[in-house]
């Protein structure tokens, strides 16, 4: 496998008035295409910052980030936007659906990026929610909303799926279902899935586990025999 994503000495600093906070410091890592990667670490370790930089949601303060040999850190706002639209699917902890759009409309929203996406109903079928397509987010459970969020991310068939605590707001069974969908994206469809979590149990389903602490990558572990999501002892 070739590296889809490469971080070279990446740092991120936040400034609020006179207060300077170093969220990431000298991060180096590689993520291969089709891998399921779990980024683990305690609160405030820099996991979400890492994910934001991966998805082009934020700009690095130092260092270089490459995606399929292209330097993301050299992209302007417009190119970053295109990158997010074409190559990245994001799944949030709190689903972040547009409350005034139905499930199918939330997925169809991706059409408006001017890219070719799969049939929104088919995307909902993939996550087992075709029958709730005309429901508004407020009419669905947390798990259902998260599945719509996944369908939205999958609809544009991105190369990279980024998940920020995707099961953080879900119960155990629903969490496993969501995790299974994400695992299948990597195993069946060869998508690169990067998942941020503070739940160490998820390390068992990952191909690669990146441990983050105090803004640096402290360890990268390869998992030769990842478990199936439904086999997790949650």
């Amino acid at each position: 496998m070739s590296a889809l994503i490469t971080f070279e000495n990446v740092g991120k600093i936040y400034k609020t008035g006179s207060i300077v906070y170093e969220a990431l410091h000298d991060v180096n890592l590689e993520i291969e295409e089709g891998e399921l990667v779990v980024i683990l670490g305690p609160s405030g370790a820099g996991k979400s910052t890492l994910l934001n930089l991966l998805g082009g949601l934020d700009a690095a303060s130092s260092g270089k980030i490459f995606f399929a040999s292209e330097e993301l850190t050299a992209f302007d706002d417009v190119k970053l936007g295109k990158f997010r639209a074409m190559d990245v699917g994001i799944i949030f902890q709190f689903y972040n659906l547009v409350p005034t759009l139905t499930a199918v409309e939330n997925v169809a929203l991706m059409e408006e990026l001017g890219i070719k996406i799969m049939d929104p109903v088919k995307a909902l079928e993939m996550v087992g929610l075709a029958e709730r397509k005309n429901n508004f987010p407020s009419q669905m459970s947390g798990g259902q909303q998260q599945r719509v969020s996944i369908a939205r991310a999958l609809a544009k068939q991105p190369r990279l799926l980024l998940c920020d605590e995707p099961t953080g707001a879900l119960d155990t069974n629903t969490g496993k279902e969501v995790l299974k969908i994400l695992q299948d994206q990597s195993r069946v469809y060869n998508k690169t899935v990067v998942m941020v979590t503070h739940n160490a149990l998820f390390a068992e389903v990952a191909d690669k586990v990146i441990y983050v602490k105090n803004g640096t990558v402290v360890e990268v572990k390869h998992n030769d025999s990842p478990k199936d999501a439904f086999d997790l002892d949650w």
Binding site: F83, A85, I90, L97, P99, M110, R152
Partner: peptide, 16 residues
């Protein structure tokens, strides 16, 4: 705020 952030994260341009 979250909707705007999400739209931006999903790749919608600032102009859109």
């Amino acid at each position: 705020r979250t909707v705007i952030g999400t739209l931006k994260a999903l790749g919608f341009s600032r102009k859109t």
